[in-house]
């Protein structure tokens, strides 16, 4: 096998899979996590209970166990048998990350003063409109720092997918290191830098959002 310097395509491809995993799971987790948070703060007791149970189960389960359930246990129950690896990776990461997104958003919602929701209800907004027009936009602003941490953790967690045969960055690195013991450090550092770049881009995005929203909070 060629060494890393001679095969930039291999590296790029591996990072492309990582980015796809991170972006798709990130978007799905934001949607599912927001729904869960709305359930937890909403007026319907059954949904609130469901949200609470989901979050406490998932947060206390190691990511590896969730991957085992999605990649190994589910197929034995005839579930997700023909699903592509990338989709399974997104499912596992989303199940896990959405619980953390939910908690970050719920903390954000709780940081919005009760008076904001009362004023919204007092002009006749329904519960749904109160959430989407007044509470959630402010909660998201308060949520940017904790959400950024959650999404950065997600970017790093894509590496867990490696253990499940997904051709993402870490798996590719292991293949390369196995065959190129001499270049091991160079390869390791290259991939580490790749992760650092992804994480730095996300942090910079979070900081600029925070700055833009500072006046309006």
């Amino acid at each position: 096998m060629d060494d890393i310097a001679n095969d930039p395509g291999l590296v790029l491809n591996a990072f492309w899979v990582t980015i796809q995993l991170a972006v798709l799971s990130g978007l799905a987790s934001l949607v599912l996590g927001t729904l869960l948070a709305a359930m937890r703060v909403g007026p319907v007791a059954v949904l609130a209970r469901f949200g609470t149970v989901y979050v406490s189960i998932v947060r206390n389960t190691p990511l590896l166990v969730i991957f085992v359930l999605v990649f190994i246990a589910a197929p034995t129950l005839d579930l997700l048998v023909k699903t592509p690896f990338l989709v399974k990776g997104v499912i596992a990461l989303t199940i896990y990350t959405s619980a953390f997104v939910c908690e970050a958003i719920r903390a954000g919602i709780n940081s919005v003063s009760l008076g904001q929701a009362e004023a919204a209800r007092a002009i006749g907004l329904t519960f749904g409109a109160t959430m989407t027009q007044v509470v959630l936009p402010q909660a998201f602003r308060a949520t940017v720092p904790p959400l950024a941490s959650v999404l950065i953790a997600l970017a790093k967690n894509t590496s867990v997918a490696a253990a499940f045969g997904l051709a993402e960055a870490t798996a590719r690195m292991r293949g390369l290191t196995n065959n190129n013991a001499d270049d091991r450090w160079l390869i390791f550092i290259t991939f580490a830098i790749g992760y650092i770049i992804i994480v730095e881009i996300m942090s910079a995005g979070a900081i600029s959002l925070e700055r833009r929203w500072r006046v309006t909070r």
């Binding site: 003063s113 008076g115 904001q116 009362e118 004023a119 919204a120 007044v134 936009p137 402010q138 309006t216």
Partner: peptide
């Protein structure tokens, strides 16, 4: 309200 409660955003 006493505390105005204008929508801050």
């Amino acid at each position: 309200f006493q505390s105005f409660n204008l929508f801050a955003h």
